[in-house]
Design a protein around this nucleic acid. Structure first.
Ligand code: SF4
Ligand code: SF4
Lengths: 150, 150
DNA sequence: AATTTATCAGACAAATTAGTCTGATTAAAA
DNA sequence: TTTTAATCAGACTAATTTGTCTGATAAATT
């Protein structure tokens, strides 16, 4: 598993917020639509607000919204806020004291892949995905396809 | 974390066995040299023998050895034997019922990366790494560099 | 001001992963 | 044939991640 569950939930939620493009989406709406546990999602989003990616408001009409223009927020930003950047920096073999001075046998063929992993997430903004979701009606939900209404 | 700890330990151990190139390396030697818990490593290697990647022998002069020519064993084989192939097939967002018919907004930019991830591990054999370890004296151990003897 | 609706804070529980331990089994060597 | 050195099998513990719950707090509406 590349990303933790908390992290994927965080991405799904920020994508939803980005595509809705309205002020303060309540977490309840997010958890309902995305089929994610409300309380768990709440904790995750609290991390994102603490990291400055989201702004939250209590009370009626409250919820969360993006702190910045979605065009300036990348997947990498969200991932780093929740999982840290270990995925993009650590050795796939978890060897300590890694570096070019004392490379492990994996380094040579792993580091290009690791770099692409980072590039992939750095180069995609929430806005781009949000646009695609709206235009192409792409799905954005856990919960099984076709099993429920709609 | 891309690979589980069990998986990275399994890779380290098979690399060690491949580079030693002698009959039946005892697990104790592996756990000592690689600084991995003996009992934990034992369980992991049992999986690998069950999957047919290793052959084991009990008793004195016993241990494990590769079941095939290391040139024909890839990282992918070891990973699949321990972690399964979910890393290479699953969605990074863990959405269910994935596929080209109902792609999620991640698919388009994630799938090339996921493919490289697979290609990376498929295209590297244990023999190649073992060769590099021996020739370039690359390190292959948890346990901190320079802190202990040698 | 009171009520309602939302996040926030943090304790708690469940599930998964990581790691430990003991004894049984097998094979080589003495 | 006895001892010794190894894996095998499986129960057990610890740590981490995931998920649940309750109450406090804040803002908007009435
Ligand atoms: S040298 Fe490369 S592959 Fe090896 S531990 Fe460091 S980052 Fe990882
Ligand atoms: S369409 Fe692609 S990115 Fe989306 S869930 Fe399936 S594999 Fe994952």
């Amino acid at each position: 598993m590349v990303l933790s569950k908390a992290c994927t939930y965080g991405i799904l939620a920020t994508l939803y917020v980005a595509k809705e493009n309205k002020e303060f989406v309540p977490i309840r709406e997010l958890s309902d639509e995305l089929h994610i546990s409300f309380h768990f999602l709440t904790k995750i989003l609290q991390q994102l607000t603490a990291q400055g990616l989201l702004i939250s408001l209590k009370g009626p009409k409250g919820g969360v919204k993006l702190a910045k223009d979605p065009a300036t927020i990348t997947y990498y930003d969200v991932i780093r806020a929740i999982d840290g950047d270990e995925v993009f920096t650590e050795c796939v073999l978890g060897l300590p004291g890694c570096g070019h001075e004392a490379p492990c046998p994996i380094h040579e063929f792993w580091s290009p892949t690791r770099d692409l992993l980072k590039t992939t997430f750095v180069s995609q903004s929430l806005e781009e995905s949000a646009y695609q979701i709206n235009e192409l009606k792409l799905r954005l939900s856990l919960g099984h396809w076709n099993l429920e209404e709609e």
